[in-house]
């Protein structure tokens, strides 16, 4: 499934990050690599972006980028 399909509060393991190259590189360096656990914290009031817990910190990504990140529960 896609990261964008997770509900608020749900966690999953990353299978692959297929976003646009620059973003993929930066996510990889932050530690978003295969097998890492991510948790969707919440969506912004307007539905996008999405706040995600990655390792020990928090980032926000836009919905269309989350659609390109495959995860499994």
């Amino acid at each position: 499934m896609r990261l964008s399909e997770l509900k608020d509060g749900e966690s999953a393991k990353v299978i692959s990050v297929d976003t646009e190259v620059d973003l993929k590189k930066r996510l990889n360096q932050m530690g978003m690599v295969k097998g890492v656990k991510v948790t969707v914290i919440k969506r912004a009031p307007l539905g996008c972006p999405i706040e995600i817990k990655l390792r020990d910190f928090y980032i926000a990504l836009r919905e269309e980028d989350c659609e390109n990140i495959k995860v499994e529960k």
């Binding site: 646009e20 973003l23 928090y58």
Partner: peptide, 11 residues
């Protein structure tokens, strides 16, 4: 142009 967005939310 298309844009991507990666925001860090600090403590």
């Amino acid at each position: 142009g298309k844009s991507s967005f990666l925001l860090e939310i600090p403590v």
